[in-house]
Design a binder for these strands. Structure first.
Lengths: 197, 197
DNA sequence: AACTGAACTTACTAATTAGTAAGTAAGTAG
DNA sequence: CTACTTACTTACTAATTAGTAAGTTCAGTT
């Protein structure tokens, strides 16, 4: 029988270590800019060991996006998120992007993959589409409730505003990479200025 | 003596054909997703011919961004652009992005390179920074004049709003690539809705 | 008619890529 | 104890990569 993995904390298994490392490289250098050799060297194993866990790079990439989608679904259902007021939920979202910024100016997953999208394996494309769609839907709902209660202000539909805000946030992390943290702060400041009465 | 190249129209020379093709591949698949072989095959020459015009891929990439910067500087100085009212100048900018969308949903140069930024040659990074800075400064001036004349409406500084709008446009093309044209239209519609009283 | 330079091609190298197949060591199940 | 499974390593292939060096063709110059 399989031993259940320790639910949390402490030494992650190799598979998770591969995913974590690959995610870092993806968000810092792009999907076409790291190889199984890079991963193997960093982890102190042979490239074939990576192939054992993820037969092809397509599998690895797809697993990466699928994991992020699972994280999103878990996150948005967390009591410490669902219990918040819309303004605080928005702030929680902004905090995620701010955290990317602080993490060596990593871009978000969407921003890392969008440009190379056509070179990605089809299942990976599908996962990324779902990820972006669900995140946008979540934010649209937050914005709708926020405006209904007078806590947030904007014109147009919640769906349109949500798409605009998320797109801006993804782009803002890219601008931060090209320049420095300043434009990110400026853009997020502008977003808050417009949304909060 | 060198024959002066025909100022415009008609069969471009190989160097220009390389740049045009590389630009297309860059905007459609990313900088790390095309090779000298791809270029050569498409142009019906040998890879070494590309090396003749651009000794390294770094040179090619840098030339690509430098050309786009020259285009920007020329474009913003054109009478048919400088003579426009701010609202029309904004529309002219939006038309550029719309044109990318119509061109097989190409992302903009900035959006194509931002994610892979750290893998780019340093001179290419510098050109891209300058390109983004100058474009943002241009839009900030347009927005400042537009608000002063009452033709445009926004809160915050023109510089902040310009950074936000350009970031959103770059991101909107990426979203269009991942999904379809719809979110791009929605996001640009939202931008116009907010800016035009 | 000889020379020169631009724009290539041919032929190559060394490195890196993803991926495979076969073997092995250690642990687990019956 | 035996069989099986997990998690690898060793050793390899075939393709692709950027890049180089030397040779060729040809149009224009002197």
């Amino acid at each position: 029988m399989m031993k259940a993995p320790a639910a949390s904390t402490l030494a992650p298994d190799t598979r998770t270590r591969i995913l974590d490392l690959a995610e870092g490289l993806l968000l810092e250098r792009g999907f076409n800019a790291f190889s199984y050799q890079h991963l193997a060297r960093e982890l102190g194993v042979k490239p074939a060991a990576i192939h054992y866990h993820f037969p092809s790079k397509d599998d690895l990439g797809t697993a990466l996006v699928a994991r992020q989608l699972r994280r999103l679904r878990k996150w948005r259902g967390l009591p410490r998120v669902t219990n918040l007021e819309p303004v605080q939920q928005l702030d929680a979202l902004l905090a995620v992007y701010d955290n990317h910024l602080g993490h060596d100016r990593r871009v978000c997953l969407f921003g890392a993959l969008a440009a190379d999208f056509r070179t990605l394996p089809v299942p990976m494309q599908a996962e990324l589409r779902t990820f972006n769609r669900e995140l946008t839907e979540w934010l649209a709902e937050v914005l709708a409730v926020g405006r209904a209660t007078g806590a947030l202000r904007f014109v147009g539909s919640p769906a349109a505003k949500a798409a605009q805000v998320l797109t801006t946030l993804a782009g803002a992390l890219q601008v931060a990479r090209v320049h420095d943290e300043t434009p990110f702060r400026v853009i997020v400041g502008q977003l808050r200025l417009e949304l909060l009465p």
